[in-house]
């Protein structure tokens, strides 16, 4: 092995043969042609709408530029409360998804291939049903007299009128169910690649099963947990159907507030400003994460 790397460059002449630069240019043209459809699609579907949204957010009522939409949002404690709830719930959802997703992914990585396939199907099953159907399912389970409150009441833990509907708990439960596959599959991909000998080696060196998980598997699974967290966080920050159906009108989140402004009160500029604020807020939360992964891969 070491021999082949040493002799690898011997055959390469010092001067490039004629025509190389033409070939390189040809290669660049080829690359550009191949990537053109993708680049075009990205510009059309992402860059343009985001640019338009940015413009819309600073457009005054009578034309001209203004920051009034931003000051209106940021100066109102009602809207700030919405932002705070959105970030808080999204973080909670992300943490819960990681706490459930990591052990689940570990088990999935260690069972036989056939059982693993069934577990993967089971995990992504929630994604295969419509969000509305799934959420109504939760409404039945969580509402007054529903399975969960009824069971808790029978156990003597709550009173008869107890309901989980219209609570932040309902939002978190519903969201974790939908977003768990993103976390689990992200972690699974990384855990599958961890050499099983490392765990065995740790055991022979005196580490118990839990100590092995803590000192070997968890650190090595970190890139997967980070990637899963990014997915779960961004998806939960921007979702509004599940929060609005399970949380109701008294527990609005930013995405729901944007929806209101855009479709009900028809304040497009205000909706755009909220979208920009959400975008910046997500970016600020994700920045340390991105740095973390950048360091790991770099």
């Amino acid at each position: 092995m070491s021999l082949s790397t040493n002799t690898g460059s011997v055959g390469t002449p010092l001067l490039p043969p004629k025509g190389v630069s033409a070939r390189v240019l040809g290669g660049i043209a080829e690359d550009a042609t191949l990537s053109a459809p993708g680049v075009f699609l990205i510009i059309l579907a992402f860059i343009l709408p985001i640019g338009q949204m940015l413009l819309l957010s600073i457009e005054g009522a009578s034309g001209g530029l203004t920051t009034e939409h931003f000051t209106r949002f940021l100066g109102d404690s009602y809207y700030l409360g919405i932002v705070w709830r959105t970030l808080r719930l999204s973080l909670l959802i992300t943490v819960i998804a990681a706490v459930i997703g990591f052990p689940l992914a570990y088990v999935m990585a260690h069972v036989g291939p056939r059982l693993r396939l069934w577990l993967i199907i089971l995990v992504i099953l929630p994604l295969m049903t419509s969000v509305v159907v799934r959420t109504f399912g939760w409404m039945v389970l969580l509402g007054r007299g529903g399975l969960i409150p009824f069971t808790l009441w029978k156990l003597g833990l709550v009173n008869r009128n107890f309901t989980l509907m219209q609570t932040e708990s309902a939002i978190v439960i519903g969201m974790v169910q939908v977003l768990l596959p993103f976390m689990t599959l992200s972690v699974l991909g990384v855990v599958m690649k961890i050499d099983r000998r490392l765990e065995e080696a740790a055991r022979t060196m005196g580490a118990s099963f839990t100590a092995t998980l803590r000192t070997v598997v968890l650190p090595l699974a970190m890139p997967g947990i980070v990637a899963g967290s990014l997915l779960v966080f961004t998806l939960s920050v921007s979702s509004f159907i599940t929060p609005s159906l399970l949380g109701g009108v008294r527990l609005p989140v930013v995405a729901g507030s944007i929806y209101e402004a855009a479709t009900k009160t028809l304040e497009w500029n205000f909706a755009a400003a909220q979208s920009v604020i959400l975008l910046v807020g997500v970016f600020l939360v994700l920045l340390p994460y991105l740095k973390l992964t950048g360091r790991r891969h770099g």
């Binding site: 000998r197 490392l198 065995e200 080696a201 055991r203 022979t204 060196m205 650190p219 090595l220």
Partner: peptide, 19 residues
């Protein structure tokens, strides 16, 4: 279990902790 035996094992692949 292995952790309660007074042993040390060296693996074919070395199994050094990469982190």
């Amino acid at each position: 279990p292995p952790e309660d035996r007074d042993i040390a094992m060296m693996f074919q692949s070395y199994a050094l902790m990469p982190h």
